[in-house]
Write a protein that binds this DNA or RNA. Sequence first.
DNA 1: CGGATTTGACCGGCGC
DNA 2: GCGCCGGTCAAATCCG
Length: 309
Amino acid sequence: MEGKEEVKIDNIVGSSTFPDNTQSSYPFQGVFDFCEGDKSSLGFMELLGMQDFSASVFDMLQVPSVVQPAASNPVATKMESPEVLNQPATPNSSSISSASSDALNDEPVKVADNEEESSRRPGKTQETNQKRQREPRFAFMTKSEVDHLEDGYRWRKYGQKAVKNSPFPRLALFLAFDFRSYYRCTSASCNVKKRVERSFSDPSIVVTTYEGQHTHPSAVMARPSFTGAASESGFSTSAFVMPMQRRLSHFQQQQQPFLNSFTALGFGYKGNTNATFLHERRFCTSPGSDLLEDHGLLQDIVPSHMLKE
DNA sequence: CGGATTTGACCGGCGC
DNA sequence: GCGCCGGTCAAATCCG
């Protein structure tokens, strides 16, 4: 895959129909072009490989040539923040296998291989000689008023920063606006982390970025009340929790075969009901090939009668 | 009282 | 070398 490539984004629509017959949708259309090797498209390239992307897909899909009128498409605005795409590259995209290589792991379980470093700052075992290897990251977009969405695991917040993209970074702390929150899985020996932030372009969208893989079952899934099928309404909270885990493992398994594809995700989330809806389509970026629609795990989580139409 | 959150300080990477 | 910035630490604080 060399040189400039143009990808037609044909109606990326995450439309949700909830049991109460309300609807929400997130339509996207346009043409996305990128250049492999071009730094400005770094974020997208990482997205292609499912290795590391911290910018939201929505942000990446903001291209000047987007067809949708801005009024009806809140994300169809010109990209104004180059930082979004200037995320540092994954140092070694082929070394996902070294699951225990998280140098930031400060659990006591971790064998300290750098004594002098830890003496300078207690509890810190960051490697000095070797570049820190990041776990693959997976980002999810959720349209929600709630920042921290239930995903079946228990998290402890360990940091918060005002995001750089904010037009008023100094005011951000006062206004409780444009935060990025850092969470760590509370389970011992599980060093999964997640980052939660609002999309810069559409503040109604929460971008949740997961890093690492859980080494334990979900706390919610372990409870008997959540292990069954969906509730009588056709949905239950597990309709959200369950797919989140399965999607993560799904992506992690699929990332090698689908190096040439990316997945656009749209989550609908309604606060007052338990209803959740997930929509997934996978687009092949090979020029000339048909867009590959993939229900993915959709059929696993949405009642069959809702898939019929 | 114990666990979770807040928040300022700190560290390392990176660009200039 | 310096400054900026993302990410993390850890003491203080909050809260059930």
